[in-house]
Amino acid sequence: MPKTSHSLAPTFHFRKVECRYGKLKALTSVSLSVERGEKVAIVGPSGGGKTTLLRLCNATLQAHSGTVEILGKCSENLHPRQLRLIRSQIATIPQDLGLVPNLRVWQNIVSGKIGKLNLLGNLRNLLAPSKNTISKIHSLLERVGIEDKLFARTAELSGGQQQRVAVARALFQEPEAILADEPVSSVDPARAASLVELLNDIANERGLTLLMSLHNLELARNHFPRLIGLRGGQVHLDQCPQQIDPGSLEALYRLDADEILEDG
C-alpha cells in the first residue's frame, strides 16, 4: 500500500537554493518540495541543473545560499557522521551505476548497507555474509528479475542486468527515497521503459519517494505523475504531465542561437 502520510516532513524541501561551480551558476533560486511517496521526473536540456539538483538531494553537494531540507533535516553544516546518516537513508543510483565489476553480484548488493554498518559489520557482510543476508539479497534479485545471477561476476552481466543489480542494491539499503541520475541513458528504448516501470512499481509497493532525471521526455510523461523541468538552473515548469502545454515544453528544450553555433 502506498503510504503518503503528509504528517511527516517532506522528503526534499528546497527554499531559494542557489548553487555555483566556480563562477558558473548551476541552480538559481530554486524552491520546491517533494512529499513522501511522491514520484517525480526531472527533465530539461543538458546543463540545465538536473545532476546538481540530485546531488543536493543526497547532500553530496552544498548549496551556496538558501536551504535544503532532507527528510526534515537541514543539510547545512552537519557533522560528517550526521551527513553520512542522511545519505544512508537516501539510495542513489548513479549514471555509471557505481558497481565493482570484478566482485560478485551479491557483494555489490550487500554494500547497499555500507552507510548503516561500521567497518567490521561491512567487512563481515562482504567476506562472510550470514544466511539471512544472502536470502534477503536473493529475494531482492527475484523482485528485479535476475535471481539466477546471485553468485555471478558482475562484469559478466549485460548492461540492463547491471542496472537491475544497482536497483537491488538500492533496495537492500532500505531507504526512504531513491534518486536515479539518467539511469536509462545507455540502453535501448524497450529496456529503458521496463526499468523505469520497475522503479515506479517498487516505489509504489514500498511507499518510497522516487526522483529520477531523464533525457527521454516521452518516458517521463508516460510514467510519472509530476514533472519538474529545469532550464538554465531555474525551475521552468513543475506540473503533472496532463496539464503541460506543448508550448512550454518546446520552450524548455529550445536551442538558443549561440548554443546552435556551439554545437555546429
Binding site: 544466511k131 544472502i134 536470502s135 536473493h138 529475494s139 535471481e147 539466477d148 546471485l150 553468485f151 555471478a152
Partner: peptide, 17 residues
Amino acid sequence: AEETRLARIAYLRRQQP
C-alpha cells in the same frame, strides 16, 4: 517459502564454477 529459497540459493552456489 524460506526453505525453498535456501534450497535455490544452495543450487545457484553449486552452479557457479
